[in-house]
């Protein structure tokens, strides 16, 4: 159980790192959204489930309740993160942020 929790947490931190690198490296706003929207939600869910497993390692009713709460956070992040991404993308499209395309690249 502890090993599974540790593995999940380390994998989550790796995806967080990928997400942040993506946010820093991608050339325009829309591609940054890809990194932020996907990597962040998966990484958050992985770390949160890992912490819930770690919390369940010494089993008791109150720990079970706390684990349920932690899993509720995971479910909420899983639903809310894509919704926030939709909202921000739509705002960008309506305002008219210029998308980066292959043609703009100086050869």
């Amino acid at each position: 159980m502890l090993w599974a929790a540790g593995f999940l947490i380390v994998a989550g931190i790796f995806f967080f790192a990928v997400g942040v690198l993506g946010v820093l490296r991608f050339p325009d706003f829309y591609t940054r959204l890809h990194a932020a929207g996907k990597c962040d939600s998966l990484a958050a869910v992985l770390v949160i489930v890992g912490i819930a497993l770690y919390n369940l390692a010494d089993f008791s009713p109150s720990n079970l309740l706390v684990s349920f709460k932690i899993l509720a956070i995971a479910a909420f992040v899983f639903i809310a993160s894509p919704t926030a991404t939709h909202a921000v993308t739509e705002a960008a499209l309506i305002i008219g942020v210029e998308p980066w395309t292959k043609k703009d690249e100086p050869q």
């Binding site: 829309y30 959204l33 890809h34 929207g37 996907k38 939600s41 998966l42 894509p82 991404t85 939709h86 993308t89 739509e90 499209l93």
Partner: peptide, 11 residues
């Protein structure tokens, strides 16, 4: 679609 390979739903 937003969560899976390389695509984001805008609207």
């Amino acid at each position: 679609i937003t969560l899976t390979p390389g695509t984001i739903t805008v609207n």
